[in-house]
Amino acid sequence: MYKSLVNKHKPKEDYLKNEVIAFIVGGLMGIIAQALIDIYSYILNIPSKDASTFMIVTLIFIGCLLTCLGFFDNIVKKCGAGLIVPITGFAHSMMSAALDFRKEGMINGIGANMFKLAGSVIVFGVVSAYIFGLIRYLFFGGAI
């Protein structure tokens, strides 16, 4: 009874439109990343593996700067996962946590809360990478 009432008044989201936008924006992020890798490896004359480090740092800087200027939250509302899943989402979560807790001071605010949102990514990434790395090292010797 209650559930049907809730469903009746829940605003209907256009799922297909969200998914098409996420598909296109995510694809454009991939093209931008590949273009940055090519540009850096051409200008600085370095292998593409090193250029991908430059690319990631550039995208993190752009993500932080757009969050500071206040554009990013509006864009994320429209694009959804198209900007959350790429590395810009990681930068956005750290930057917005730092901005939100800035008024509580340097140590107890920024320092203690910077990883409030991004911390789960790092914790689960490190734990799963350790377990899977152990499996790969024990069974394959890291050979493949």
Binding site: E13, Y15, N18, E19, A22, F23, I24, V25, G26, G27, L28, M29, G30, I31, A33, Q34, A35, G80, A81, G82, I84, V85, P86
Partner: peptide, 20 residues
């Protein structure tokens, strides 16, 4: 560039489907 578009787009699409 085409491969980069398709791969990144598919990953983001999966994310959006989970979110929705």
């Amino acid at each position: 560039y085409f491969n980069a578009f398709i791969f990144c787009a598919v990953v983001c699409l999966i994310g959006q489907i989970i979110l929705d």
